[in-house]
Simulated assay, not measured.
Amino acid sequence: MEKQQDPRVLRTRQLIRESFIELLQSIQFESITIKDIAQKATINRATFYTHYEDKYALLDEVIEQAFKEMIPEQVIHAEALTEEIGDQIILLTYRYIVDFHQTCRLDSKSIATLVDSQIKGMLQKTIEDILSKEKENHQYIEILAAITSSAIYSATYQWFRLEKNSHADLLLDIVRPYIMRGLSKQL
């Protein structure tokens, strides 16, 4: 039986996350202090440390929670990496990058590197889960997921940087065939 969390704990964690996100919109990550987060959340620093080890742990949770909330049910329950599922993953990744960069100031290289690394890892895990269902005993699932997720992330990030935000359908037309052809030769 799963242990129920205290609603007060859940509310406090939510308040901390929301305060942190608000701060990220106006202050660079490196400049945000635990004191800033605690003041914005109207809690004391000790309460912050009860819930999070540091602001990096908080950042990790914010990134992961936002990514998981964006994954369509169809992708979560996919039994194979079809073109439709691939399209959803490409668009999910692109929307996540756009949303995160619009919500948070990612001016510094260090935070951008942290965010990129975590997104790539979650994307790889999502693809690996799907490929594992499709070909249970394939010995190179991890490598194929790493290649596929890297290609999707790199293409969507580059698309974002080139400011082609209004043409996601063109992004799909470019990335989908590359991904699907590569996987079809390996699976």
Rank of each mutant, 00 (worst) to 15 (best):
E64R: 14
Q5R: 14
L15A: 10
K40V: 02
D87R: 12
L162A: 13
T50Y: 10
Q14E: 09
R17T: 00
N165Y: 11
V115C: 04
N137A: 10
F48A: 01
L162M: 12
A112T: 03
Q28G: 06
A145S: 12
A145C: 07
Q39M: 13
Y178Q: 11
K3H: 13
A151F: 15
M1F: 07
S19R: 02
I119R: 01
Y153T: 07
L106P: 09
A155N: 03
L92P: 09
E64A: 14
V98I: 05
I127D: 10
I97G: 00
I34P: 03
T103K: 13
S110A: 12
E69F: 04
E2S: 15
T103Y: 08
K133S: 03
R45Q: 15
V115K: 08
N44K: 02
Q124D: 10
L58M: 02
E79L: 08
D169C: 01
I97F: 00
N165C: 07
L106N: 08
S154V: 04
H101C: 06
E73C: 05
E73N: 14
S184G: 06
F160D: 04
A38S: 12
L59W: 01
L144G: 02
E134W: 07
I89F: 01
K68T: 04
A66K: 14
H138L: 12
Y157H: 10
Q88V: 02
R17E: 02
M70Q: 13
T12F: 00
R161H: 09
Y56I: 11
A66Q: 13
Y94D: 03
K164Q: 15
I71L: 11
T42Y: 10
Q39E: 13
G121H: 08
R105W: 09
I179T: 04
D129K: 09
F48T: 00
Q88I: 04
I27F: 08
L59Q: 02
D173V: 01
A78N: 00
S149T: 07
R8D: 13
S110I: 10
L183G: 11
K3S: 03
L106T: 06
K120T: 05
Y140E: 10
R181H: 14
T93S: 09
D99S: 10
I127N: 10
H138V: 06
L91S: 06
K133Y: 03
T33H: 03
E73D: 13
E22H: 05
P72G: 04
I37N: 00
R17V: 00
W159V: 01
L187C: 06
Y49V: 00
L172G: 10
Q5E: 15
D129I: 01
K125E: 13
I71Y: 06
I34M: 09
K35T: 12
N165K: 15
F67R: 05
K55H: 06
A155G: 03
K68D: 13
K35V: 08
T42Q: 09
A168S: 11
R8Q: 15
A66I: 02
I111V: 15
I32M: 01
T156V: 13
S184R: 15
D169I: 06
L187S: 15
E69I: 02
L106S: 02
A168Q: 14
T148Q: 07
D6T: 08
S117M: 04
A168I: 06
I130D: 01
A155R: 09
L106H: 03
Q124E: 11
D54E: 09
Q118L: 12
T113N: 12
D6P: 04
F100T: 11
I127C: 09
K55F: 01
E30I: 07
S149L: 14
T148A: 09
I16L: 08
R161M: 12
T126S: 08
L144Q: 11
I127L: 05
